[in-house]
C-alpha cells in the first residue's frame, strides 16, 4: 500500500465540513474509509464530527450515513446490520455491504459504553472507530472518562488547588478487548499505513472490531492546528498512546511502538508531551510537578504491562 495507489480511492468524506481547521477527526475518518473498497454504511454518534459533517441541507457524506443520537451509535449500526442480514436472507438484496461507526471518546468511553458493549457481545459485523480527543469537545471541552490526569478542561479546570483532572483515564481499549472480540487496536493518524491496515482488518474480520484512535484537537488541547499530526506522533513516541492490536487472542505492538519495544527507537519523556499542549501547562508549575512524575510512572507501568501481554 502506498499513497500513490491510495490517491485513486474515491473520497467518501468530502470537503465543506465545518470541523475546526486542523482537526484530526476528518483525517482519521478518511484513512479508515480507505481501509475498504467495498460499499460501506456509516453510523455516527453525536459530537463534533457528526454535527460538522451533516449541517442541513449539506452533507459531507458520499456514502450512506446515519446519526440518531449521542449514546447509541453501536445500536444504530446493529439495526442496520440486522436489516441487512434479514433482507439478504430473504434475497431482497445481494450486494456485500460493510458497516463502520464513528464516535468521540464521550460517546465511546462514557455515555455510549453500554450500547457498544451490547453490540459487541451480540456479535454484529461492524468496525467501531473512536476519535479519542480526550474530552467532550462539541459541547466546549468538558472532562470525559478518557481525559488524562493533569489535563485542564472546562469541568475539571486547573486552579490554585487542583492541576486539572485528578484521575487517570480508563483504559477503554483493554476493556473492549476483555469482550474477547475478533479484532481491536489502538492507532494514530500520523501512521496512516498502520491505521489503514488496521481499518482493513477491522472491516474484513467477520464480527465486531474496535479501533481507538488518538485525535488531537487544536481547540481543546490548545495547540496550533498545524501540529495535529506531529502531536499524534509524539503521543506514540512518548508511549502515552502505544500502537498495538489484538487479533484472534494475540496482542502485538505495531508501528513506532514496535520499534521502541525492540529498542530501535527512543522512548521520549512524557514531559515532551505535556509541554506541547496548553491543557497541561499548569503541570510545569513546581507545585504540580509531582503530578507530571505520576503521569510518567503511569505511562511506564502501562507500557510494561502492554509489552508483557505482547510477550516482549
Amino acid at each position: 500500500m502506498n499513497l500513490k495507489e491510495l490517491s485513486h480511492t474515491e473520497e467518501r468524506l468530502v470537503e465543506g465540513h465545518r470541523l475546526c481547521a486542523g482537526c484530526a477527526e476528518p483525517i482519521i475518518a478518511r484513512q479508515v474509509l480507505m481501509g475498504t473498497s467495498k460499499p460501506v454504511v456509516v453510523a455516527n454518534a453525536t459530537g463534533c464530527f457528526e454535527v460538522s459533517t451533516s449541517n442541513y441541507p449539506f452533507t459531507s457524506w458520499n456514502v450512506p450515513w446515519i446519526h440518531t443520537a449521542f449514546e447509541n451509535a453501536p445500536a444504530t449500526i446493529s439495526g442496520v446490520e440486522a436489516a441487512y442480514n434479514s433482507l439478504k436472507r430473504q434475497n431482497k438484496i445481494s450486494e456485500e455491504v460493510k458497516f463502520v461507526v464513528f464516535g468521540g471518546d464521550g460517546a465511546t468511553y462514557d455515555i455510549g459504553f453500554q450500547s457498544l458493549s451490547g453490540a459487541i457481545e451480540r456479535g454484529h459485523d461492524f468496525l467501531y472507530v473512536c476519535f479519542n480527543n480526550e474530552a467532550y469537545m462539541n459541547t466546549g471541552i468538558q472532562r470525559s472518562g478518557a481525559t488524562p490526569k493533569g489535563a485542564s478542561t472546562t469541568t475539571c479546570p486547573s486552579g490554585t488547588c487542583t492541576p486539572g483532572k485528578k484521575e487517570f483515564p480508563k483504559d477503554l481499549t483493554r476493556i473492549i478487548i476483555a469482550h474477547d472480540l475478533p479484532y481491536a487496536a489502538q492507532a494514530s493518524p500520523h501512521n496512516w499505513k498502520d491505521l489503514i491496515e488496521k481499518s482493513r482488518k477491522g472491516i474484513d474480520t467477520p464480527g465486531p472490531a474496535f479501533i481507538n484512535v488518538i485525535s488531537p484537537c487544536p481547540r481543546g488541547w490548545r495547540h496550533d492546528g498545524s501540529q495535529t499530526i506531529a502531536l499524534s506522533k509524539l503521543a506514540v513516541e512518548t508511549c502515552v498512546w502505544p500502537l498495538y492490536e489484538y487479533e484472534n487472542g494475540e496482542w502485538r505492538v505495531t508501528g513506532e511502538s514496535l520499534r521502541i519495544a525492540e529498542g530501535k527507537k527512543e522512548k521520549r519523556p512524557v514531559m515532551d508531551w505535556l509541554n506541547s499542549q496548553g491543557r497541561f501547562k499548569q503541570l510545569t508549575k513546581s507545585k504540580f510537578s509531582p503530578v507530571a512524575d505520576e503521569i510518567q510512572q503511569n505511562v511506564d507501568k502501562k507500557w510494561e504491562s502492554l509489552l508483557k501481554l505482547c510477550h516482549m
Partner: peptide
C-alpha cells in the same frame, strides 16, 4: 437489545436501512 434505548435505536437503524 441490551436496553430499551438500544432496542428502539436498533429499530430505527433497521427501518432506515429499509426493513
Amino acid at each position: 437489545a441490551e436496553s430499551e434505548h438500544s432496542a428502539l435505536t436498533i429499530c430505527v437503524g433497521a427501518s432506515a436501512a429499509g426493513a
